[in-house]
Amino acid sequence: MREITFSEALGEAMYEEMTRNPTIFTYGEDIAKQGGIFGAYKPLLGKFSDRIIDTPISEEVIFGSALGAALAGMRPVAEFHFADFIFTGMTAVTNQIMKIRYMTGGQAKLPLVLRGPDGISKSAAAQHSESIETIFMHVPGIKVIIPSTPYDMKGLFKTALRSDDPVICFEHKLLYKMKGPVPEEEYYIPFGVADVKRKGKDVTVVTTSRMVHESLKAAEVLLKEDIDVEVIDLRTLIPLDKKTVIDSVKKTHHLVVAHETWRKGGWGAEVASVVQEEAFDYLDAPILRVGARNVHIPFSPPLQDFVVPDHKDVEKAVKKVLGEV
């Protein structure tokens, strides 16, 4: 199969759906000239120039206007530039987009997508490095997709572009250049279907985004010690595929949740709660969580490495859950 980058996968998803659906348009800061700060929209530039719009630095209006445009019959895809800056327009998301259908008794349909980069990069420091997906899982009213491979990026995003509900998509900065197999033929990935990225029998690791790759790396290392790890990529947090997780736990009896966002109160805590509520009897050990330490992402490389989890943290947690340390 041909290989393309994560960023190209996003570009293709947009290209195909924009070709099909003239109501899709996209806007945000720095997208119309260079196709976004990570260049994902480059393939769209010549073709849909009237449907790719550079906006002022006005986040509350970027998000709020997506709601207005969706109510008025369009299908906006608004970019948030850096996940950290969603907060500058947060009220438009949590107080408007996520509530209006419910508050109006189901009258409104909101075919809109918010998307952009999150996570660490090479020392971008505290205001350009956050992973904040948990917040959108906590507050009801938006579907949360968080792909880890080019294949998932394209398939999930195409589904997002056909969804009649609001969707937020988090794309990890360190994944944009990653290559992976993506078929030429059209495909869609339904929401709420986790992907078992690696089958294993000893411990289940539930993860997303960049940490999928760190968990796979950990699984490789642990295999040498005869520990067989199953890596589950949730792919979407809302809806959450409980069944795949619980089925896996029934088999492995050990669970580790791993994400880049803060360990304290991260979405892994929710997954852990669900599992202990619904599959407690299958667990042989307490569930362990891997996540960032309880501080902000610091600038200096040795500090960032210390705060943000990687495969070594997953390895440690897997061994600990098995009682091996």
Binding site: I57, F85, A125, A126, Q127, H128, P298, F299, S300
Partner: peptide, 24 residues
């Protein structure tokens, strides 16, 4: 080492911070 270029501050000379957030 916690801030880097975008977050340099020196409260002792009245610099209340650089800012990574535009208009912050």
């Amino acid at each position: 080492g916690k801030g880097g270029s975008m977050h340099i501050a020196d409260l002792s000379i009245g610099v209340l911070g650089a800012n990574g957030e535009v208009a912050g």
